[in-house]
Amino acid sequence: MAVTALEGEAPQFRQGLQSGVSIAIGYAPVALTYGLLAKTTGLTMTETVLMSLIVFAGASQYIALNLLALGTGAFEIILTTFIVNIRHFLMSTALNEKSYEEDGLLKKATYSFGLTDETFSVAATKPGTVTAGYMFGLILMAYSSWVICSGLGHLFGASLPKTLQESMSVALYAMFIGLLAPSMKGAKKVIYLAVVAACFNSVFTVTEAMSSGWSIVLSTLISSFIIEFIEYTKRKKGGSSGE
């Protein structure tokens, strides 16, 4: 076992890098725009890149800029960041279940820093267990794109053609769809899970019932519970009714 794990380390890392390419492409326009917005909000180059370096969370970085522009205080911005990113707790819990047991806590604690909606989605839809080597490769690729493009955005974001900037805003959503679609084929459960969560999140968003961070957490939890509960009850009733 240990021997296979050692031999597997380098290919795992390379496999992670490869899986990270689509995230790197998706991050590029988002980070470029972030860098540009940060500049217009009045952040220096150092502050802009520092935020990408140590926070590494797209949505909350955008929100922070927005709040800064509105003149919101630092404490409120930090609190909002926490609320927006609490959904990562859920993702880390799910990934912990999938993580390779032999990797120690130190490795897992290190790669947990790089957990985003995107790195999580790629790692969690990957078949089998997730090793630290794979996570390091995946995160390194995504993180580099995020940090470098944030800096580039601060430097020359304004000179990008507007049409391209706009059409690239779809990139991350396209990636999520690309990750979800193969799992949906032949698996009704996956379809139900995604659709139910999408419906709840849409209702919460349209009614402005809560912040987007909580909305994602709640709709994910509700959907995961309901579908599991239905399957569980069906299975209990006997094999004939459950397909």
Partner: peptide, 27 residues
């Protein structure tokens, strides 16, 4: 066992919530 099942569901539910309604609101 039940909770393990719920946790295995989370990636797919998260993807659904991340895609909709966000993708409709990009412009």
């Amino acid at each position: 066992f039940f909770l393990q099942g719920v946790l295995k569901n989370i990636p797919y539910a998260t993807l659904g919530a991340l895609i909709f309604p966000g993708v409709l609101l990009i412009q």
